[in-house]
């Protein structure tokens, strides 16, 4: 046991590599949260426009384009997307920024489908009741449909967030030192493969457990708040 502690000390503390690991951890969090923000905003926008645009002839081309966008993004591996953004589209940008935008865009395609599914799960009669009172489609969506859809959407968004967090582990492809890359660098420099990779794995695991617990709590809160 004490031999293992000596090894840990040698790999991370004495070498000063714990700072690299912390930086990696920080970058993973930044990319995940930044991408999540983009994903939620863009995903909601796509979902609502597709939902509201379905019955409006003038919106048909926009809906078609958005559907195409979602399918294209979902059809390309995120690593390939990352490389395309880093080496082609955003050549002069920092890896961290490219990472946030790429993961955000990638996730927004999935997010929009989740949100659309939640919106569609709300009973059609709700929209009709709102419309019959004289509310516009947008007013109904905002005040009647969306608040109810959140309940269906939240668990799926939690899963997406967990997937997103783990997906960011490929950020190292574009010269970002995220948690995974940091662990790999330490492994390379210390010739200790076991401990850096173990630490990386355990860190992801703890974060996922934490997120899971948080989301469960939010779901319970939500269920308590509207007594249906």
């Amino acid at each position: 046991m004490s031999a293992w502690f000596d090894k840990l000390n040698e790999t991370f503390i004495a070498s000063g590599y714990y700072r690299l690991m912390l930086d990696g951890f920080k970058n993973t969090i930044i990319i995940t949260l930044g991408a999540l923000a983009i994903s939620i905003v863009l995903g909601s926008l796509i979902a609502v426009v597709r939902y509201l645009g379905e019955d409006v002839p003038a919106m048909k081309p926009v809906v078609k384009i958005l559907t195409f966008y979602v399918n294209v993004i979902r059809g390309i591996p995120v690593v390939v997307l990352l490389l395309i953004f880093y080496f082609v589209i955003m050549k002069s940008s920092e890896g961290l920024v490219v990472g946030i935008i790429t993961f955000g865009i990638n996730s927004s395609a999935y997010m929009s489908e989740l949100i659309r599914g939640g919106i569609n799960a709300v009973d059609k009669g709700q929209m009709e009741a709102g419309r019959s009172l004289g509310m516009s489609r947008l007013q109904c969506t905002r005040r009647i449909i969306f608040p109810q859809a959140v309940r269906y959407i939240l668990p799926a968004v939690g899963n997406e967030l967990i997937a997103l967090l783990k997906e960011t582990s490929v950020a190292g492809y574009v010269a970002v030192v995220d948690l995974t890359r940091a662990g790999n660098l330490v492994r390379n420099n210390t010739y200790d493969a076991v401990n850096p990779l173990l630490l990386v794995a355990v860190t992801y695991l703890v974060m996922v457990f934490g997120l899971d617990a948080l989301l469960r709590k939010m779901e319970r809160r939500l269920a308590k708040n509207d007594k249906r």
Partner: peptide
């Protein structure tokens, strides 16, 4: 239409009250 619908109340078979 929305303006005219304000003057036409409707009651549905399935009530369609807003549960939230």
């Amino acid at each position: 239409l929305d303006l005219h619908r304000q003057k036409m109340g409707m009651v549905f078979q399935q009530f369609n009250l807003f549960p939230h």
